[in-house]
């Protein structure tokens, strides 16, 4: 790339303000690369982050991964130690979403905490979570903001 840059002749006295073409070309190339990387990867990797009711009414959500936040419902947690599958429900307001998840459960997972699950809504309204994140309270206070409503 740099070979093709126009460089002025050495030794010629510069009277007028030169346009530094080399810098313009290299700068624009880098800026364009950054812009392309950001835009292309935003659309390729962004996940919906929605409430349970939004998920229920979402039409485009069958084919893509979404993230849903909610509070783990009391008494809903069922563990299967053999297969390491865990079933539970999360709630937000009056909405309830049943979830299945296979894998290691975070330390602080228990009924009553806020979790964020990522995955897909499967058949019969059960959400298949690929990842399970528990909100880690750096201060032990029971006040977690909900996902922003659009």
């Amino acid at each position: 790339m740099i070979d093709e840059l126009v460089t002025p002749e050495v030794g010629t006295p510069t009277r007028r303000r030169k346009v530094p073409w080399g810098f313009v070309v290299a700068g624009v190339a880098i800026a364009a690369a950054i812009g392309y990387l950001v835009i292309a990867n935003t659309s390729a990797t962004a996940d919906y982050y929605m409430t349970i009711s939004q998920l229920r009414t979402c039409h485009a959500c069958d084919s893509r991964a979404v993230r849903v936040a909610g509070i783990v419902e009391q008494g809903s947690v069922v563990r299967d130690d053999q297969t390491q599958v865990i079933r539970f429900s999360i709630t937000e307001g009056t909405d309830v979403l049943p979830i299945t998840y296979a894998g290691v459960v975070p330390d602080i997972f228990r009924p009553g905490i806020t979790v964020v699950v990522e995955g897909q809504l499967g058949t019969r309204g059960v959400f298949q979570a690929r990842t399970l994140l528990a909100k880690c309270p750096s201060k032990f206070q029971n006040a977690t903001p909900a996902p922003a409503q659009p």
Binding site: L37, V38, N41, T42, A44, T45, A46, D47, Y48, Y49, M50, Q54, R67, P147, A148, Q149, P150
Partner: peptide, 28 residues
């Protein structure tokens, strides 16, 4: 910065809160 505030951007200018995580940053 863009990735960090993308939930805000998408909620304000789009129709839906969206998030990007590790794969976005790895690829960019």
């Amino acid at each position: 910065f863009w990735g960090t505030i993308f939930p805000l951007i998408s909620a304000t200018f789009g129709h839906q809160t969206m998030t990007v995580d590790a794969p976005f940053y790895d690829r960019v």
